[in-house]
Write a protein that binds this DNA or RNA. Sequence first.
DNA 1: TGTACATCAGTGAACGCGCGTTCACTGATGTAC
DNA 2: TGTACATCAGTGAACGCGCGTTCACTGATGTAC
Lengths: 206, 206
Amino acid sequence: MSDEPASPRRYHHGNLREALVHSAEAELQEHGLEQFSLRGVAKRAGVSHAAPAHHFGDTTGLLTALATVGFERLVAFKDREQAAAVADSVSQLVAAGLGYVAFAEAHPALFHLMFTSRRPDFADPALCAAGETAYRLLVEDVRRVAADAGIEDEGAVEARIAATWALAHGLADLVIAGRLRHLDGAAAKDRRQRLSAILLCGLAKL
Amino acid sequence: MSDEPASPRRYHHGNLREALVHSAEAELQEHGLEQFSLRGVAKRAGVSHAAPAHHFGDTTGLLTALATVGFERLVAFKDREQAAAVADSVSQLVAAGLGYVAFAEAHPALFHLMFTSRRPDFADPALCAAGETAYRLLVEDVRRVAADAGIEDEGAVEARIAATWALAHGLADLVIAGRLRHLDGAAAKDRRQRLSAILLCGLAKL
DNA sequence: TGTACATCAGTGAACGCGCGTTCACTGATGTAC
DNA sequence: TGTACATCAGTGAACGCGCGTTCACTGATGTAC
């Protein structure tokens, strides 16, 4: 809307599909998943409430597209943290965890949409692919740590993959729920160190 | 309702408050939090849809009462697992984690109500007390493990408490979301061993 | 280059639905005397 | 022990609301010739 203030009001939007995904994210961020409505998204995009149906069919279709974008963004958060971290495998894994938590904090409702709710169509090929890419990157990071630590047993590695994901996921979920009190008072840098310490507790076989 | 099939239909219910909490749990289990409605609960309890207001005011009041019951039940699951486990501190902590996961699997919607949603009134004294009791028990279990491992630094212990909770919480959340594929095919006993192995990965300083 | 026409994207009014809330009521209970 | 009355719990009709869906429509676009 405010992107094109000077453009005349045209009958055809031009790129409504993308605009709707963008509006849907804003709607989700502001009202949460429980209050999310197709009408609200259409209103936010400045379009009649029946318009989204032409692009997404129903709410599920729109939320599916939004969740797909979410997984891509999750990977971007991880990449950013890892680029700023030391190169050794454990530090890289901790950075991946920090990225996971940072993503959840930046987009809590999107995080819930992707991992907790059942509203997107998780059988959708694009959504599947985005989710699997994110998962595969995590698996690679964990395998690198396991290899450096000399762990070869496949069962142990798989348990470690699950434990790593669970730790990062649980930490992210508790943080956005405001449940970890001893993080609240801390300044940004201190907070970050505490999160790293928590992740390191569970990730590293010291 | 089916508890008292022979009782005549009385104008006054007698114990409607408790019956509504019970119905609310069934409603939550069947329809999930997003579809949860006061009218549905009242119908399920066999009472007019305006009746709940006399006991709970609004939906928040009812969900707050339900979440309180949830924390008490969570503790019961933990107790049951720990009673069946070996007495050493690490095994007891793993058992606590298994109890957490078992609770989430038995009551997924209640789990979300308690930890993910913002719909109950978390400032409610009874709910606060129930949640703090559950948390205190977790802290005690972790401190026992830390003491046995000779960890004395308070910061390290606090990080370990958060890591333990995050691991159990994340594992529970991923399991009920059906995200941990390598648990799917396993039989009950094998499944339990895999969950224990995952928990042990993050909990123990071996 | 110009015209006709099919297709597509978006409109806006109308629909039925379930929701929470309100309100005057009625039946049951308990307490004062 | 009996009566009157206040209080409380539950009823059921009515309300306005926002929702998703439907549908006949209209304006724009692109393609065939």
